[in-house]
Amino acid sequence: MTTLLKDIAVLFDASEPGQHVLEIASRLAGSHKSHLIGITALTQEPAPIQAGFAKGSAIHEVIVRQQSAMAAHAVQLGQSLTRALHRHDASGEFRVISHAESSSESSLHALYCDLLVVSHPDIAGSPLSWSAPQILRQSGVPILIIPFGWRDRPVGKRVLVAWNGSRQSRRAIADAMPMLMSAKEVTLLLIDPERTAELHGDAPGTDMAAYLARHHVKVELKRVISGGLPVAEVIVSHAKASQCDMVVFGAYSRPKLSESLFGGVTKTLLTEVPIPLFVSQ
């Protein structure tokens, strides 16, 4: 298990959400002394109507103009990445991928990093086929999802960890450990632990809290009863009440058939993204 975020990747573009997520990822890279990989998917702008009547050498001219426009756009995005890196004293690099790439091809660009940062509700700078669930399932890279409304607010200072004793939840904690160690406060939240007593033991959450404490995480253990409310609603309610700026959870810890038929915590959180989410699978 790593205790450092050496490489962080971010999907971004020139849009307001794209620049917003770039700023947050750059700030995160600076605070963790990480290398930031800025990734954008360039799409070819539609040609003007008159281009459809081009013939002979004019067709070549249309193609050259479109390629020049795309190159200029890429230069502008590279410059915005450079400025963001400079503001937060971080190193980085710029990668351009095709807007039409399949998710399996595109995931290769993010595989060699410790964390991928994306925007919500739309993933700025992503290829056509990308979605958060696909990224999780195909790349195995943990994702930090930033809602567009999260303006000029910290990320990862006051963290809520949703712990249910599952393998996915355990993996999420391991992946998020660098951020948990640097957080000011971490709440380890257990919801209805008696329902899965076989995963928790006699004192639910105590062993995981002790494990986190040994890693110098400032952790507080909370056990709560859902009272029949959806688990996702309970997680968000406690996160907001504690003024948390990030929730860590393991995706799809219920059987896939159950998730697809009845929905679940993962589906609800990934759809709504009320606060920044650190998701692993």
Rank of each mutant, 00 (worst) to 15 (best):
V279F: 09
P17L: 08
S253H: 09
Q76P: 00
L42I: 15
L108S: 12
C244W: 01
R254S: 15
L199E: 15
A72W: 00
G250H: 11
N164Y: 04
S26C: 07
M70Y: 01
T268Q: 13
D114S: 09
Q44T: 15
S80Q: 14
T2P: 11
D245C: 08
R27V: 02
H200Y: 12
I24W: 00
D202Y: 01
L257W: 12
A132R: 11
Q67R: 14
F278L: 11
V234H: 05
S15A: 06
E105Q: 13
G38R: 06
A197E: 13
C244A: 15
T82Y: 06
S80G: 01
I146F: 00
V96C: 09
V64N: 09
S139N: 04
L269H: 05
M1G: 13
G140E: 02
G125V: 09
S119W: 09
E259A: 14
R254F: 03
I97G: 04
I63S: 10
G165Y: 04
S102A: 06
V279C: 07
A41Q: 11
D202R: 14
C244P: 05
Q44Y: 06
V273S: 10
C244T: 12
I39P: 00
D192G: 04
S31L: 13
V219P: 02
A41T: 12
N164T: 06
Q134L: 12
I59N: 01
S106M: 13
S280C: 11
M70K: 12
G263K: 02
V118G: 09
Y112E: 09
Y252K: 05
H60Q: 12
H32F: 14
I275Q: 09
R153P: 00
A197P: 08
Q79G: 00
P230T: 05
L108W: 04
A162M: 03
S119C: 08
M181C: 10
I146M: 04
I235A: 03
G18Q: 07
V248E: 05
E105Y: 07
Q243D: 15
R158P: 00
I135N: 03
Q281H: 15
H238S: 01
V117S: 03
T268Y: 07
D207H: 05
E198R: 09
Q243G: 01
L180R: 11
R83G: 04
V75F: 07
A74L: 02
L188T: 12
S26G: 14
V161I: 06
A203M: 08
R214H: 14
S131I: 05
G250E: 14
S237Y: 02
G18S: 07
V62K: 00
L136Y: 10
L199Q: 15
H99S: 14
Q67T: 13
A100E: 13
S106I: 08
S106E: 05
A72E: 13
V10K: 05
V155L: 02
A84K: 02
P154A: 00
E220A: 08
L108G: 09
V224F: 06
S131H: 07
K222A: 05
A25D: 08
R151M: 00
A90I: 07
K267G: 11
A9D: 11
H99D: 13
L5G: 05
A84R: 02
D114H: 14
M177G: 03
M1R: 10
P178M: 11
W130N: 01
S129G: 03
H73F: 06
G78S: 06
G250L: 12
S131G: 06
K157S: 05
F12E: 11
A72V: 12
V117L: 04
V231S: 02
L85V: 10
A239C: 03
E101L: 13
T206R: 11
